[in-house]
Computed example of a mutant assay.
Amino acid sequence: MILSPIDTVTTISKDEFVEKYYKAQKPVLIKGLAQQWESYGKWTLDYMHDHVGELEVGLYDNKPADPNKATDKPVKVMKFKDYISLIKSQPSDLRIFFFIITDKLPELLKNFTYPDLGLKYFKRIPTLFFGGSESRVLMHYDVDLSDLLHFQFEGKKRVLLFDNAQSPYLYQVPLSVHTVYDIDYENPDYEKFPALRYAKGYEIIMEHGDALFMPSGYWHFNRYLEAGFSMSLRSLPNTAGKFLNMLNHVFVMRYSDKLMRKLFKAKWVNYKQESAYRKSQRALENSQKA
């Protein structure tokens, strides 16, 4: 992989953000953006422990999805306070996925302000994600094709970002928004996945209060380096073409994949993995000829 530093700023105006990053669909890291919030000090694991501790939450780990089970089924359920105590006290790959603030912790809506950057936020689903120090999230892009403003809190997190144009080199699985399961993006095996050498992207280390703008359709791999959590604010597609593409992703592609998975289970998963490898191999051969 060819990884470059990302544009990084400490302050940015709405006009500059819109012209240089939003319209250009180019990612940018805004250091300490959350520090502008009056309740910035409440964005801690301890606050979550004290305010939503009794709620039971589903947890996920780093293992690939079982083809014989629903992909959204958690591996474990426990009280939120016990989960936070666990990830603060020891290494863990357990994580919480898509914790919708408006449903689970609406009082938290008063603890942040939507940044005035020209994004039209979808305010129904500001979403939290939690992870232990061993947690990682499979390389993927979001199925709703939103532009994301992604905040990090507590521990550091490593993020890899790739434009969707890099899909041929990332071993994208057909009818899916993720890559093959067995790529280790922390120690890539270029013998097994040679096309990865040609993938051009960004490497980012996020810290407490940082915000990362991830344009629509950008691939991202997240690795929690320390126990922490993040929040994503979403801005839905703003053109007719992007909106139709989003509908296709959400209602056609996703449910077609679920149906095939239900009917053929492991055979379908294996077919997709093999197809991804063949397509990336062709992209590699074309690149070598160029």
Score class of each variant (00 low, 15 high):
residue 225 L to N: 06
residue 271 Y to A: 08
residue 228 G to R: 01
residue 257 D to W: 10
residue 267 K to L: 09
residue 252 V to A: 15
residue 191 E to H: 12
residue 179 T to H: 04
residue 271 Y to Q: 09
residue 276 A to L: 09
residue 184 D to V: 01
residue 228 G to N: 04
residue 246 M to V: 10
residue 206 M to G: 06
residue 218 Y to G: 01
residue 252 V to F: 15
residue 184 D to E: 00
residue 193 F to S: 10
residue 219 W to D: 04
residue 279 K to F: 11
residue 202 Y to R: 05
residue 207 E to P: 01
residue 188 P to L: 12
residue 183 I to F: 05
residue 180 V to A: 05
residue 231 M to V: 02
residue 258 K to V: 09
residue 187 N to G: 00
residue 283 A to P: 01
residue 235 S to M: 11
residue 192 K to S: 03
residue 243 F to A: 13
residue 178 H to G: 01
residue 242 K to I: 07
residue 236 L to N: 10
residue 226 E to V: 06
residue 180 V to Y: 01
residue 179 T to A: 13
residue 194 P to D: 03
residue 251 F to V: 03
residue 189 D to C: 07
residue 233 L to M: 12
residue 218 Y to A: 00
residue 271 Y to K: 13
residue 207 E to G: 04
residue 185 Y to N: 02
residue 204 I to W: 06
residue 277 Y to H: 14
residue 232 S to A: 14
residue 264 F to T: 00
residue 189 D to P: 00
residue 263 L to K: 14
residue 272 K to Q: 14
residue 276 A to H: 05
residue 280 S to Q: 07
residue 237 P to H: 12
residue 261 R to P: 05
residue 231 M to C: 05
residue 265 K to H: 09
residue 187 N to Y: 05
residue 218 Y to R: 01
residue 177 V to Q: 08
residue 195 A to H: 01
residue 284 L to Y: 09
residue 265 K to W: 01
residue 225 L to G: 02
residue 201 G to R: 05
residue 202 Y to V: 06
residue 276 A to N: 02
residue 237 P to N: 11
residue 245 N to E: 15
residue 245 N to D: 12
residue 202 Y to W: 15
residue 181 Y to E: 14
residue 283 A to N: 00
residue 207 E to D: 04
residue 193 F to V: 11
residue 277 Y to A: 09
residue 251 F to I: 08
residue 239 T to C: 05
residue 238 N to R: 10
residue 245 N to S: 15
residue 198 Y to T: 02
residue 253 M to H: 07
residue 227 A to W: 07
residue 209 G to N: 03
residue 249 H to F: 10
residue 252 V to R: 11
residue 235 S to A: 15
residue 176 S to Q: 14
residue 207 E to R: 02
residue 252 V to K: 13
residue 225 L to P: 01
residue 203 E to R: 04
residue 257 D to V: 02
residue 230 S to G: 11
residue 241 G to Q: 12
residue 268 W to E: 13
residue 225 L to T: 06
residue 210 D to F: 10
residue 183 I to W: 03
residue 177 V to H: 08
residue 256 S to P: 00
residue 179 T to N: 07
residue 279 K to W: 06
residue 195 A to N: 03
residue 264 F to P: 02
residue 178 H to D: 03
residue 251 F to D: 00
residue 190 Y to G: 00
residue 177 V to A: 10
residue 260 M to R: 03
residue 206 M to L: 15
residue 229 F to M: 10
residue 257 D to N: 15
residue 194 P to G: 03
residue 197 R to M: 12
residue 234 R to F: 09
residue 218 Y to L: 08
residue 210 D to S: 08
residue 261 R to Q: 14
residue 192 K to R: 12
residue 264 F to R: 06
residue 183 I to Y: 03
residue 247 L to T: 02
residue 262 K to S: 13
residue 279 K to H: 09
residue 177 V to G: 06
residue 212 L to E: 01
residue 228 G to L: 11
residue 252 V to D: 10
residue 236 L to T: 08
residue 231 M to E: 04
residue 208 H to T: 06
residue 225 L to I: 08
residue 270 N to I: 01
residue 284 L to E: 04
residue 177 V to P: 00
residue 253 M to N: 12
residue 189 D to Y: 04
residue 282 R to K: 14
residue 247 L to F: 09
